[in-house]
């Protein structure tokens, strides 16, 4: 995690420097104008790197030690924790994907299709969100 954090800080510094050089170079050029697309993209790439580096740094200082995957002496099974809850058989993601495909199809070729797709998107999102909150899984 420490390496990840440092890499993102490094990337952020690189993009920050690039933004300064890029903007300065444009200003020194014949036209003396700022080329906004590149400048904004580079500055916000620096922000993106700093954002991730800062968050990962916070996570690392909160976890109270090194993760097994960052420890050279760790065994494979030390890094075998509960990673989270993943449904092994849910149909909702593919339902949502299909509904979204209808919406975008509608945007591309005829809005009326999107109006059919949108309620399906809502059904899929609610279904997915509450999959483990109702029926057999209610708690």
């Amino acid at each position: 995690m420490k390496a990840n954090t440092n890499l993102f800080w490094l990337l952020s510094a690189f993009f920050g420097l690039s933004a300064v050089v890029y903007t300065g170079w444009n200003l020194l050029d014949d036209k003396h104008i700022v080329e906004w697309v590149g400048t904004v993209a580079l500055v916000l790439s620096a922000a993106l790197g700093a954002f991730l580096a800062f968050y990962l740094g916070r996570v690392r200082s909160h976890q109270g030690g090194e993760l097994p995957e960052d420890t050279l002496t760790a065994d494979i099974d030390d890094g075998d924790p509960e990673l989270g809850h993943f449904s092994p058989w849910s149909w909702w993601p593919i339902f949502l994907a299909g509904a979204l495909a209808l919406v975008f199809l509608g945007v591309a070729i005829g809005p009326w299709i999107a109006f059919i797709g949108l309620p399906l998107v809502l059904i899929a999102i609610v279904g997915w969100c509450y999959e483990y909150y109702r029926g057999f899984f209610a708690r």
């Binding site: 790439s45 954002f51 991730l52 109270g64 030690g65 993760l67 065994d75 989270g84």
Partner: peptide, 29 residues
Amino acid sequence: AAAQRLNRPNPVMVGTIVWLGSEVMFFAG
């Protein structure tokens, strides 16, 4: 013993932050 008590990074939260990073670039555009 390598297995200390660790607060593992919550994958939902890390995933959300990474996704928000991509949103930064969307608004950059």
